[in-house]
Amino acid sequence: MDATAFEDLAEKTLESLFDAIDDAIGDDADVDLENGILTVELEDGRQYVINKHAPNQQIWLSSPISGAAHYGYDEAAGAWISTRSSDSLLDVLSTEMSQIAGTPVRLD
């Protein structure tokens, strides 16, 4: 994927995540997207940081629940997949947001 396609896809992904997370747990968290960095600060002070990393064409996640992970886009799967496992970014975030909300949350 060329740099422009990566930037477009990563930005759309972050915007989509912002909207979905804000809708799902916005009453229990401060959700902000600025300059390609999505932050989710929970009421207890824990914080998620999700950002694009252009040099590696990845989305990076820092989670207070699962820790740090990097996700590359898998065109065949049509998803951002962890570089260390077969987990998708959306599945990880859906699971964790469900734990936070106390109700099922699907971000896809």
Rank of each mutant, 00 (worst) to 15 (best):
E34Y: 13
E96S: 07
Y48L: 04
P55M: 02
A10K: 07
I59K: 00
N35K: 11
D28C: 10
Y73N: 08
A76N: 14
V105D: 07
T4C: 10
L107N: 06
Q57M: 13
S66E: 08
R84A: 00
S82P: 09
I81W: 05
T13A: 09
P55F: 03
H53S: 02
P55E: 06
S16E: 07
I59S: 02
D27C: 02
R46K: 13
E11S: 14
D44I: 06
A24Y: 03
A3C: 11
A29S: 10
D27K: 06
Y73G: 04
P55Y: 02
A69F: 10
R106E: 15
S82F: 01
R106Q: 13
I21C: 02
I100S: 03
D108P: 11
A101I: 03
Q47M: 10
W60K: 10
M1Y: 13
I65Q: 14
M1D: 13
H53N: 07
L107K: 10
D30N: 11
H53T: 01
I50Q: 00
I81Q: 04
A10S: 09
A10Y: 01
D32E: 15
D74I: 05
D44M: 08
A101S: 01
I50H: 00
G78Q: 01
S94P: 07
W80F: 14
S98F: 00
S94V: 06
I21W: 04
D87C: 09
A77Y: 02
I100R: 06
Y48T: 04
V40D: 00
S82T: 01
N56Y: 13
E7C: 11
M1R: 12
G26W: 00
L14N: 02
T4V: 14
D32T: 14
L61C: 07
S16R: 14
A54S: 15
I37D: 04
P104M: 09
E7N: 14
V92F: 06
T103W: 07
L61T: 06
S62V: 09
A79P: 04
S85Q: 05
E43K: 13
A68S: 14
D87L: 08
A68G: 15
P104R: 09
E41T: 15
P64H: 09
Q99K: 13
D27R: 04
G72H: 15
Q99D: 12
F6H: 07
M97Q: 01
V105N: 04
L17V: 05
S82G: 01
